[in-house]
């Protein structure tokens, strides 16, 4: 398998604070990779660098064979590389179905121009509803997204991402702030999205049970640098990872 996303030697600093120091990682097409690390280790900054939200100081980001370092957020999203947010971001005053409809992919500019002043096709609405069902939100589909609970908003955000038919999804703490019952539901859906829809995943996660069961390969960051990488088993037993998390020096 070839790498779908290859991050090489990416550095990013904010003033005197180096958030990412020459980070390299790669995720194979169809794989699920994990990104862990203590608070402030640079995980979300790396996501922001990959999707074009922060300009990268140095290094390169190659997605699907293209250098995307200098592209904007919407351009990268249209290539099929999407991210979800740690604090949920949904269109609060629109209902769930509308949230889904507007998330339908618009890769081709010509196509997008033509569809802009047409009603949303029935096929899109149908797909939106079936994905809402997949996310367990079908009963809530006519509620405003802002009225959903935090966990339901996370599910909606995930469903919106699937609606966009991405090649790869970057998920920023998909289970943070979610009750344990729902966590299992989210995990199961992530695995199904990967297996059935073939979406490559890169997941930031603090819940070790979740990430160890989800990812085939895990990268661990600390203080902006790559601390360890390997299978869940290897990372779990790496003394450097343990000391970074537990503070035992």
């Amino acid at each position: 398998m070839s790498a779908l996303l290859r991050v090489s030697e990416v550095s990013k600093s904010f003033g005197g604070v180096t958030a990412n120091r020459a980070l390299s990682l790669s995720v194979d097409a169809g794989a699920i990779a994990g990104l862990i690390g203590p608070n402030g280790s640079g995980k979300t900054t790396l996501f922001n660098c990959i999707v074009g939200r922060h300009p990268v100081d140095s290094g390169s980001v190659v997605f699907d064979g293209r250098e995307i370092r200098h592209r904007t957020v919407p351009q990268i999203a249209r290539l099929g590389l999407l991210r979800t947010f740690q604090q949920t971001r949904v269109y609060g005053a629109m209902d769930c179905v509308q949230n889904m409809q507007i998330s339908a992919p618009q890769r081709d500019a010509e196509n997008a121009r033509q569809k802009l002043f047409r009603k949303v096709p029935a096929a899109v609405t149908e797909k939106a509803e079936s994905l809402l069902e997949f996310a367990g939100l079908y009963e809530k589909r006519r509620l405003r997204a802002g009225e959903l609970s935090f966990g339901q908003q996370k599910l909606l955000e995930f469903a919106m991402a699937l609606m966009n038919e991405p090649k790869m999804l970057l998920l920023d703490e998909p289970t943070a702030g979610i009750n344990p019952t729902l966590i299992n539901g989210i995990m199961e859906r992530l695995l199904r999205a990967n297996a059935e829809l073939g979406i490559t995943l890169l997941v930031i996660e603090h819940n070790m049970r979740v990430i160890m069961n989800l990812a085939q390969h895990i990268y661990c960051l600390a203080h902006g640098s790559l601390l360890a990488a390997g299978t869940p088993q290897e990372v779990r037993e790496d003394p450097r990872v343990l000391s970074a998390y537990l503070g035992a020096q």
Binding site: A77, M94, I102, F117
Partner: peptide, 22 residues
């Protein structure tokens, strides 16, 4: 139309709209 939805999406969360490729 889709345009109306896009305007509402920008109103509700422009960062999200950009992150979704709009």
């Amino acid at each position: 139309c889709r345009f109306g939805l896009a305007l509402n999406a920008i109103r509700d969360n422009e960062d999200k709209a950009e992150a979704m490729g709009l």
